[in-house]
């Protein structure tokens, strides 16, 4: 059969292609190819350090805020490593945690409803997953509403989402009023209600107290998470990607690769150091 290239995914920054080398009915070698290269690491070279706060979030349109917070902390580390102490005030730390948390909630909702659930429609030919249909389905639309609502929390503190650069070494640029804080908490409350009614199928406290999958499945009513678990099991996705035989799931990357900067194409991969948590 020789070489086979197949586009397997196209969700955020261009396509991901899977290239397989077949030999005698078996896969001899496999490559994951992302044929889109913007080269942020090269674009940053020679730029004033604070400009990374503007450039780096633009790596990703859906999780750019995570890149901002990581960049801010990296710059703070640079200052600290050169002996300049950076004191981030407690309220700034909290605000950063709140905005990054808001983006993570948005990520969960968008990935789950927009990038994962629609794929089940293809697998589930007979079943009715109409509510998850992109653009038209009511659940898809609700996911748009609530994922857009939670990022208002970032807008309260950072002015906008995507692509604010409101976190800077030493803190954040904002000084919110009581009323802006209330705007943010009210938004979070509204999101909690949405997740209780749609994702968990129970109230938040109950969900947190759940100790087993069976207990969850038993108690959840009208839960999209329950639906997802059902579909995963039905299509045996719960058994994919497990770390046995030739499948590897690398959980902790730190020990597996050598540390440091490299421009070599290949890095040593210590398979013996792979750990499963």
């Amino acid at each position: 059969m020789g070489k086979v290239i197949k586009t397997v995914l196209n969700r955020v920054e261009g396509e991901i292609q899977l290239k397989l080398h077949w030999e005698k009915g078996k896969v001899k070698d496999a490559f994951i190819i992302a044929p889109n290269f913007r080269g942020f690491e090269f674009i940053l070279e020679g730029k004033p350090v604070l400009d990374a706060l503007v450039i780096n979030p633009r790596i990703c349109g859906i999780c750019g805020h995570a890149h901002l917070i990581a960049t801010t902390k990296a710059i703070e580390n640079i200052y600290e490593n050169t002996g300049q102490k950076i004191d981030v005030p407690q309220n700034a730390k909290l605000i950063r945690d709140i905005t990054i948390g808001a983006e993570i909630i948005q990520n969960h909702i968008r990935w789950f409803y927009m990038f994962v659930m629609p794929d089940f429609i293809k697998l589930e030919k007979g079943r009715k997953l109409k509510a998850f249909e992109p653009v038209k389905g009511i659940k898809w639309q609700q996911a748009v509403d609530y994922s857009s609502k939670i990022v208002k929390v970032i807008a309260v503190f950072g002015g906008q989402w995507p692509h604010t650069s409101y976190a800077v070494p030493g803190g954040v640029v904002c000084d919110p009023t009581t009323f802006e804080i209330v705007e943010a908490t009210a938004t979070v409350d509204s999101l909690i209600k949405f997740t209780e009614e749609n994702i968990f199928g129970m109230n938040l406290d109950t969900y947190i107290s759940i100790t087993s999958e069976d207990e969850f499945l038993d108690r959840a009513k009208g839960s999209d998470l329950k639906e997802f678990l059902f579909l995963c099991k039905k299509h045996k996705l719960d058994r994919e990607g497990k770390s046995y035989h030739r499948f590897l799931t690398v959980c902790e990357m730190e020990h597996v690769f050598e540390k440091g900067i490299t421009k070599k194409k290949k890095k040593d991969f210590h398979v013996g150091k792979v750990r499963r948590d």
């Binding site: 857009s148 990022v151 208002k152 970032i154 807008a155 309260v156 503190f157 950072g158 002015g159 906008q160 989402w161 604010t164 650069s165 409101y166 640029v173 904002c174 000084d175 705007e183």
Partner: peptide, 12 residues
């Protein structure tokens, strides 16, 4: 932005 603010309003 997001119906409620802007960078300069937030202080950026």
């Amino acid at each position: 932005w997001n119906g409620i603010s802007s960078k300069t309003r937030a202080g950026m």
